[in-house]
Structure formats: C-alpha cells, structure tokens
Design a protein around this nucleic acid. Structure first.
Length: 215
DNA sequence: CCATAGATTGACT
DNA sequence: GTCAATCTATGGA
C-alpha cells in the first residue's frame, strides 16, 4: 500500500477558493470550537511556501478553573494575556526549549480560552513541509510541535489575527459519527477532562501517547 | 535575581 | 520501553 493513498491534495487555486472561518465561529465556548475545528483547513505562507492541512486533532484549554490551562494562574500574565484577548487570534508559545505550539483563541474578549491544534493532514505544500521537518509521511504533522515546524509557526505569530500570517479556512462539517474525544495528552492524569477531539481512523492523529480513557 | 516545570520530540537500550 | 535536549514564563527570595 502506498503511503500517500489516503492523502488528497488541493491545488493552489483550490486553497484560494476556500473562505476564512467567520470571527463569530471562535467567539463561542472553547469546547465547541475545539470540536468544530476538526475538518477545517490550516494554512500559512503563499506561492512556493503555501502550506495547508486539514485539522484532525485538537484540545480545548479553558480558563482559570482548568488546572491544565496556562490561564490557571492568579490572573493575567504576560504569557496568558493572549488567551484573554479577542477570539480568532493565534496563541503561540514555546516549550521544552524546542517546540512551538499553535492555539486559536476562543470565547469573547475578556474570557480566557484557546484550542491547541495537535495534528493536521497535509493537503498542500508537502515538499515545503518535508524540507522544514526533515521527515516524510506521518511524521510531517502528527503532533503539535511538528505542526508548528511544518507550517513555520513561531513566537512571531503570537497574538496575530487569523487571516494575516495564519489562516483557518472553512470546510465541510465533520459528522459526529467520525469524531471521538478523550482526556488531553501530556497532562498529569487524574484531574483532566475529556477535552481532546480527533477524527477516528485518521492516520495523522498523534498516538505517541494515547490520552487517558474515559468511562 | 534564581530555581524550576513544562499542552514535546527524537534518539537510543 | 527510557531519557535528555534546551529556553521561557512564572513565582518566590
């Protein structure tokens, strides 16, 4: 079986025809946005650098009452202020000294919330991603740090509005039957909530560490 | 100012 | 399976 059998590429022109997701889409409860972002298209760059991918895995991070969230501090800080800012902006942070993480800010301005983009299925700019990652196939984008590297996303993108350097484009809604949820990855189990969403069976869904199972 | 954990990845036994 | 890399924001002295 060919490794690319499940990948459907879109042309430059087909990507340009996609409409940006409305701002109001993001000004909703974080959990809802995380679910509805599945199937949407992430895009960066243009021309030879145009890269696009279908979002296949997300995680919701809530406000101060969510112990796993960066907003779980005593009030607003330099880092988490973006999560309190206007929806439809990028929240990018750097961690473990190596990796950037792309989040999309949710909820109305003043309320903290963001959705982590954990994995995408590439649909354009494969060669560009391969150069940036130094890898091929599933290793291109099957994890949050990998997505950021493949799409050349770093701290310069933090707090920028979608539609400028980073775009989220509309696509057909993924039916509930194809979506599953679990505990979030990488947090100490025990207190976590079922806030990870993914498309069942998609090979790009990260599986380095399966999230905690739900009852 | 200093200590340290961290929404991960890749290399290695 | 185990583990180190590498740097930033945060919180306490």
């Amino acid at each position: 079986m060919h490794a690319k059998a499940w990948i459907r590429m879109l042309s430059d022109e087909q990507i340009r025809c996609l409409q940006p997701v409305e701002l109001s889409f993001f000004a909703r409860p974080t959990e809802t946005v995380a679910r509805d972002l599945l199937g949407k298209v992430l895009a960066t760059g243009q021309g030879d650098d145009l890269c696009a991918g279908c979002i296949v895995e997300t995680e919701a991070y809530l406000g101060a009452h969510d112990p796993g969230s960066h907003a779980a501090t005593k009030g607003v800080t330099v880092r988490n202020r973006v999560m309190y800012g206007p929806p439809g902006h990028a929240y990018v942070y750097f961690t473990y000294g190596n990796h950037h993480m792309l989040n999309i800010v949710t909820e109305p301005e003043g309320t903290a919330g963001a959705v982590l983009v954990r994995a995408v299925e590439p649909i354009h700019g494969l060669e560009c991603m391969e150069i940036r990652r130094g890898k091929r196939g599933l290793e291109l984008t099957n994890g949050p740090g990998k997505v950021a590297q493949a799409f050349a996303i770093d701290l310069r993108h933090n707090a920028t509005r979608l539609g400028d350097m980073i775009s989220i484009l509309d696509a057909e809604r993924v039916p509930d039957a194809q979506i599953a949820r679990s505990g979030r990855v990488g947090l100490s189990a025990g207190y976590d909530l079922p806030l990870r969403f993914y498309i069942v069976g998609n090979p790009f869904v990260s599986r380095s560490r399966p999230g905690p199972r739900l009852p």
